[in-house]
Computed example of a mutant assay.
Amino acid sequence: MGMGHDKNKVSIVIAHYNAGNYIRKALDSLVRQTMSQDDFEVIIVDDKSTEPLDIIQGYECKIKHLRIIVEEQNHGYPSIPRNHGIAKAHGTFIMLMDQDDNLADDTLLTFYKFAGNDSDVIIGKYAEGKMYNGTQVPFRSGTNIKDANIITDHILSTLAPHKMYRRAMLNQYDIRFPDSSYIPVEEDQVFNMKVYSASRKISILADKDYYYWNQRRDFGNLGKSLSYTYNEPWKYLNILSEVFNIVEASPNWSLLQQSKLKAMYIGRPFNSSYTNVIEIIKLQKNEQERENLIIGLRDIINERMSSQSISEVGQESRWMVLGIKHGMNYEELSLIEAELSSG
């Protein structure tokens, strides 16, 4: 992974669609970076906006290396635009940002220095903005960790894409965002699980806020909320299968770690809109779809989770995994949930 061929230290990739004035905050924060303008490039990948790009073009005199790439067709999801930005990047690292967000002034320089030659992903503390719905677990201690432990340092609770990634690692392991026809929801989880599975070192910077998550997590005002939900069985089954594939294929994780990570993933609370697997089952359109999802989950649990792995699922979710495994239907699972929540 030689450093010789990289034109820049960091490439910032922003998927954009009709952000209007909202993108000023992101670009102004890039103008203010303490890293020299010679050392980073900004790649805006526009998902064929219907509005002109004059606001972004206005920054061509303020950001030395600013490139605008316009997609030939609108995708409606950030995955493909981000992939195109990653493919066109020249930096040693790639920093993914969303169009409404902004960075602390020293984010790029601090991340780059902390990474050194051996960190493949840098996770900086998120500031809790108005619409923030992530989790702060990995950052609570306020401690910077150079070589974080995937299990004990709660890395699985930060699967958002606003991180800095070593470009050579992304390319070596062919890590890209999945197509929305295969994974239309939480595509960043699949991307980051693959990153974590391949990284030599995962680093956490938690001493202060670095990334300001301002508004909507959903790729700006793209109005994709209807499709951006686990409302059909295949959507959750695909993501779960894919995450398990990644865990099992990791060049770095032992069988013990793989078992634990599957348990952590299937048992994790998602974000504020979906708390856990039972909530995803509830989102299905009708009884048939709910049962189809349960049957699909039962197959995955039976084929891919050992009894050891199931015993490591967090207590609040373990009953549900066991219930699905042992043939319970939606009604029975709902009754257990109601009993448990009433104490």
Rank of each mutant, 00 (worst) to 15 (best):
G116D: 05
I145P: 06
K194F: 01
T158I: 08
S180F: 13
L108C: 13
T143L: 12
F111P: 04
K163T: 07
I183T: 05
Y112W: 10
Y173S: 13
L108H: 07
K113H: 06
S157D: 15
S199H: 12
K130S: 05
F191H: 05
T107A: 15
D179W: 01
K146S: 11
Q99M: 14
L156A: 10
Q189V: 09
S197F: 06
S197V: 09
T135Q: 11
S197P: 12
R176V: 11
I150R: 09
L108Y: 11
S181F: 00
F111A: 12
I123T: 03
L159P: 06
E187A: 06
A168P: 00
F139C: 07
K146E: 09
N133C: 12
A127Q: 14
N102M: 10
D153G: 08
Q99K: 04
I145G: 04
Y132M: 08
H162G: 03
I150N: 07
L103Y: 11
G124F: 09
G129A: 12
A104L: 06
I145V: 14
M169R: 04
K163N: 10
G129C: 14
K201W: 01
R167G: 01
D106M: 02
Y173I: 11
T152K: 13
H154M: 13
I145T: 06
A198D: 06
Y196W: 12
V190T: 13
R200P: 04
Y132N: 15
Q99G: 04
G134L: 03
F191I: 03
I94P: 01
L108D: 10
M131Q: 11
N149D: 15
D98I: 05
P161R: 06
P161S: 14
D106Y: 02
K146G: 03
D153Y: 07
Y196F: 14
A160H: 10
K125C: 14
M97R: 05
I202E: 08
V195S: 09
M164Y: 02
A168T: 15
T152P: 07
E186S: 07
R176D: 04
D101Q: 10
L108N: 12
L96I: 12
K201Q: 15
T110M: 02
D101N: 12
Q99H: 03
D100E: 15
Q136F: 07
V121Q: 08
S157G: 02
S180I: 10
H162I: 05
V190G: 02
A148R: 13
A127P: 08
S197L: 07
N149Q: 08
Q136G: 09
L159K: 03
Q99S: 14
I155H: 04
I123E: 02
L103I: 05
P161L: 14
Y126Q: 12
